[in-house]
Design a protein around this nucleic acid. Structure first.
Lengths: 210, 210, 210, 210
DNA sequence: CATGAATGAGGCTTCATTCAT
DNA sequence: AATGAATGAAGCCTCATTCAT
């Protein structure tokens, strides 16, 4: 019996092994400059093996983004489920969640925007693409919940909760891109945290019903 | 000397001709999928000629971003110079300026964020790169002026003006990326404007001293 | 010793199982487009197992051709052995035999001609290659017998029997290739039979001593 | 003025240069074992250049076959146009024409059957493919003319002229394949000529109305 | 200045074959 | 004997860049 299971576990482990290596290389060189050869070398496997676990370069890349989205969703669900937090406290928790997502994988998130927005990745298998969209929509909806709650409790100004979620997400991703770009000059300094704090400070003040 | 000048003017005109073509193609296909051949065809020149005006593909691309930054800077200077506007009115004007920048070139701006943030383009000649940085910093400083003024007039809460500028810029770029990514699904709808309005609405309320 | 035999029989059965699967796949996709993986899947075995029974892809393929040659030879021997048929009747029987060979495996025979004639397959182990040659020569000799008989009985014109056999074989293989190529356009129609009839009609008239 | 023309001529010359090299290599190694690298080396060009003149390997290969078909058609038209030859003389001329086609390119014709019949070549651009079919049909019709004439003059037995053309073509191609395969063992000897003579001898006798 | 044919390095991917289990 | 994951060589093709005209 357990033999099937073990196989499955080992397969999953290999996938992870590859993804870890891929993450390192993509983060360092970006999508197009990264070669499958690079990833093979980093993961100490052969190029052929990579294709046993991922259909192609695009799909390998996408699976990394997918993992982040998964993590994001989990964190967000955690926030919205908290019974004994006020909406404003939940916004604070949202900030922490987003920051953790960033810390979970500071560089890949950048490439994720590259994936998400434009360029290439219509070579993703529709399967994967649809999964990513679903996951992403789910995360946005989860975020919107917080705002809806605040509005319903008459604590936040009346704006479309979905739009507010969009603003938060855009702000977050914009900050990641922008602050990270500063790190190219000054790699040691952590730029994101303080700016994210200010941004959320203003956001909280801005949506608060006076 | 008139002859020298004319030569120079014609050279500049050619550069523009190429840039216009390049903008179209990059916008449609993104950086890596665009070939020099594509640009040559669109500009009705030969590939060889392209290299007489731009050192390489990267630099041609960067020059487009540069032009947008130029335009942004001009618009921002225009806003800060307005004597008879209150800081809050200037924020509104800032919003309009940003939106115009987006309209000036909706797609290239997206690619610019890619350039700016992640992927590759550290193969830009240091010259160009430093120019871009200078211009970008200048724009940020210009934006910060508005906030500084508001703070000094005791209308805005006390936050580091530069950080506020960063937040605005990040929010803007994040929204462009995010809303544009939605357009992949629903190409006709203009997503940016209403969301940008909400974002600035909240920003304005958020920094306003009560 | 019974045990040895049984082993041997089982080994042979496995070989057959693989060959049946291989035949299906090769027929559908042709030699180079067929992967060992394809054959493994079709035969419900693993790729590794394939190599326990056949040295390599080429040899597996060749063994299929070999089987057809075997079948051909048997049919031809059957024809030549018939005591109570006139040479001309034997020619008719030859036609039927050839057509049966075709029906036995319509598509593999096509690939066999590829193998036989051109492309690649000089990487066959000399052993196999020589076997195939031997078998093929035997078949040709068997065919020639019919013509020799007809000539000796003064019914056919005097031509080298071996050359006549060559002509028949070439005509047959040429027709298979040619008519099959037409089937690409019109897959349903059976082209070979009527054309083969005409060809043999002319052949019979052509060699008949008037 | 002439400048455009010269360019065109040079382009054509390059194409020929590549085709000559390709012919040599394909003939020696067959289609799948031939690499573009091989052809590049043989033609003393770079691989990239090959793709400036031919869309891909398949199309380069097909163009060789196309050239043979062209040559065949020309020769056949020449035969059918001859006013002062009897149908039977035209059959003799047909034989010579076919033999010349073979001599024009003894080895490529073999690969042509490979192309024509099965396997790969559905990656040919529909354009090229349709051209080849058109040309091939034309040649067959031209051949059929001879038989039709003979039948109308009551010299040949009544069989469908098109079917007779098919038989001749199949016989020819079958012989080329078969006799060429013998050359693998005995490369010096010219096998085709005498067998082709016998084949046509029998054919002529076979269709002649007694 | 302008051209555009030629280059050739390098990328992605496939697949026959091996070998540890 | 059977497996099938892993290998890695090798192929096709693209495209930024150069250079002779």
């Amino acid at each position: 019996m357990g033999i099937e299971e073990r196989k499955e576990r080992e397969r999953e482990r290999r996938r992870q092994q590859i993804m870890v290596a891929a993450k390192r290389v993509f983060s360092e060189k970006g999508f197009s400059k990264t070669t499958m050869e690079d990833i093979a070398r980093e993961s100490e496997l052969s190029t052929g093996t990579l294709y046993l676990y991922f259909k192609n370069k695009e799909e390998l890349f996408a699976s990394l983004s997918f993992r982040i989205l998964q993590y994001l969703l989990i964190r967000l669900e955690h926030v919205t489920k908290e019974k004994d937090k006020s909406p404003e406290e939940k916004i604070a928790a949202l900030k922490d969640a987003l920051y953790d997502v960033y810390e979970f994988d500071p560089l890949i998130i950048i490439n994720m925007f590259h994936l998400q927005s434009s360029e290439t990745l219509l070579n993703l298998s529709p399967q994967i693409l649809s999964n990513m969209k679903k996951m992403s929509r789910k995360a946005m909806r989860e975020m919107a919940k917080i705002f809806r709650e605040g509005i319903e409790e008459d604590l936040f100004i009346e704006r479309h909760p979905q739009a507010l979620a969009d603003v938060v997400w855009a702000m977050f991703s914009g900050l990641v891109l922008w602050e990270e770009s500063k790190r190219i000059i000054n790699p040691d300094k952590k730029f994101l945290k303080p700016t994210l704090d200010i941004a959320f400070d203003i956001l909280t003040r801005g949506i608060r019903k006076t």
